[in-house]
Amino acid sequence: MIFLDNLINGLSLGSIYAIIALGYTMVYGIAKMLNFAHGDVIMVGGYMAFCGLQYWGVPTVLSLVIAMAVCTVLGVTIEGLAYRPLRQAPGLAVLITAIGMSYLLQNLALMIWGANPKSFPTTFINGSSIRLGSLNISSATVYTILANVIIMVLLTLFTSRTRMGKAMRCVSQDRGAAQLMGINVNRTITVTFAIGSALAAIAGVLLCSSYPILQPTTGSMPGIKAFTAAVFGGIGSIPGAMLGGVLLGVIEIFGKAYISTELGDAIVFAVLIVVLLVRPTGLLGKAVREKV
């Protein structure tokens, strides 16, 4: 029973990582950059939902929508102001800009909401639990796993069926050839940031529902782990982000439960190192075809 308990907790935590990892992997696949500010967009999403629930007395679902809207605008603005001017610049310049953006967001949050941790309110998302025999599953766990599955299905449909989704796949496979099809690459990048940031808001609300402490650094550790998950699954691959995220969550919870609580995070990163040694492209990553 403890095993099952741990497994379900792992799936839940892993689902949050997976939703965040989707943002990393999509942006990497299409814009070929690592957006290290992504984790902090999660934090902003958490704070916006917190404000909705705590200060503005807005219902839970509407708070989530507000958080998603703000994060979408934030993500698109960051891309347009900070990353777009560097489109032709070396990768390192973009990477450093992204790290700078991460600190900027954390410090803005510190100015606006202060350093004291906020306690995320109880909502329908985390307010109850389900009994299954001797198992006690929190509703946050159920909603998190459910959200993950729905997002995966919708994203798969989006990239395989819609015009914009297909254009995004083209850009990720060959940007130059995509331009020759008449695809507006800048627009696909904007849409990618919009989707990734909206997902970050959902992840933020789910994260705060399961771990209800909110502070300006709330997004950084889950952000780094989700980035790890994206690399683990194969960066650039949407199913890879999903698989990597879920596996990472399960490994983390099992590591903490059976090996050592203190070493839990170290185990996560050790697994990443082993996987990358054996399969440098990640679990579902595709080897880049070098042109000769």
């Binding site: 796949r169 083209c170 496979q173 060959d174 130059g176 020759l180 099809m181 008449g182 075809r289 042109k291």
Partner: peptide
């Protein structure tokens, strides 16, 4: 329209999807 040097087909898309992308600017 240009057919680029080195062919540059979309390697992970099917033949049909590649052709459909060629018609990206036209009404579906």
């Amino acid at each position: 329209s240009m057919c680029p040097e080195g062919r540059r087909v979309f390697p992970h898309m099917t033949v049909r999807e590649n052709l459909e992308m060629g018609g990206y600017v036209r009404p579906s």
